[in-house]
Amino acid sequence: MSAWILLRGLTREARHWGQLPEWLRARGLSGDILCPDLPGSGRNAGERAPASIAETTQCLRAHLARDGHVPPYRFVALSLGAMVAVDWAQRFPLEVERLVLINTSLRRCSTAFERLRPGAWPLVARAAGCWHAGARREAERAIHALTCRRVDEREADLEAWTAIYESAPPTRANALRQLTAAARFEAARLAPRCPVLVLVSHADALVHRACSAKLAEHWGVPLIEHPWAGHDLPHDDPEWLADTIAAWVGNALAVATQATSA
């Protein structure tokens, strides 16, 4: 049974998925749900993050193989993680069964100002300036303001996120290398061979939603927009995200079953 691989974005890690893995299991998705960390983040915080998406992909392939997991995989991937998933699917097509790409951007399809919105720069600078442990809660506050629109549990989020950082702190150098990898990444012109679903948040203050729209149009794949969430869609509405993924997978399986029976 193919495993689902969940990949987070810049400097974030498995614990930042919050409730999403539980929601996906509750929706009956078949296969294991794995949340590996990018090099330089989470359990891999001690590793040097590569400065290219291709190298990041190679590291993750090696980590999964080391842990006894074998392809093909299905990806749910956010932002930088989605770039890794796209690279994986285009360079190793037999290893990827389907892709769900959330609030991502590709250099080929979008401008630099769309990929990192100018309005986000002050909060990005604030987070970078408060990177160290003594001021980390303020960094997380800036990240929360930049990426989240659901604020009813903000103080609990900040407490949890600060604790995550303190237990496995990503370095500024690794953050810069991850950012460099994202900025340089340019996917192939043709869409991956596997089914692709693009999801976008209407109120994303970090990456303009036009990035996802242009990508979906360029590849001729479905695009679904969440009406109010921010960049961190898994945080803002994990139930909607799980429902949408489950419905997409269910529809695809139904179509395949009908085609086979015909």
Rank of each mutant, 00 (worst) to 15 (best):
M1V: 13
W4H: 03
I5M: 06
I5A: 03
L7A: 03
R8N: 11
L10H: 04
E13H: 12
R15Y: 07
R15V: 08
R15L: 13
W17V: 03
W17Q: 01
G18L: 07
P21R: 02
R25G: 12
P36I: 05
R43Q: 15
G46C: 08
P50V: 04
P50F: 02
A54G: 10
R61F: 08
A62W: 10
S79Y: 03
S79P: 05
L94F: 10
V96A: 09
E97Q: 15
L99E: 02
F113D: 15
R115C: 05
G129N: 11
A133S: 13
H144I: 05
A145E: 12
E153P: 00
R154W: 09
L158T: 03
E159W: 12
A163H: 08
S167H: 13
A175G: 13
Q178T: 06
Q178M: 10
A181M: 06
R184W: 08
F185W: 13
A188D: 14
P192F: 00
R193F: 11
V200T: 12
L206K: 01
V207H: 02
V207D: 00
H208V: 06
A210I: 12
S212K: 02
K214Q: 13
E217P: 02
E217K: 15
P222D: 11
H226C: 08
A229W: 01
H231A: 08
D232S: 12
L233K: 02
W240V: 04
G250M: 11
T260P: 04
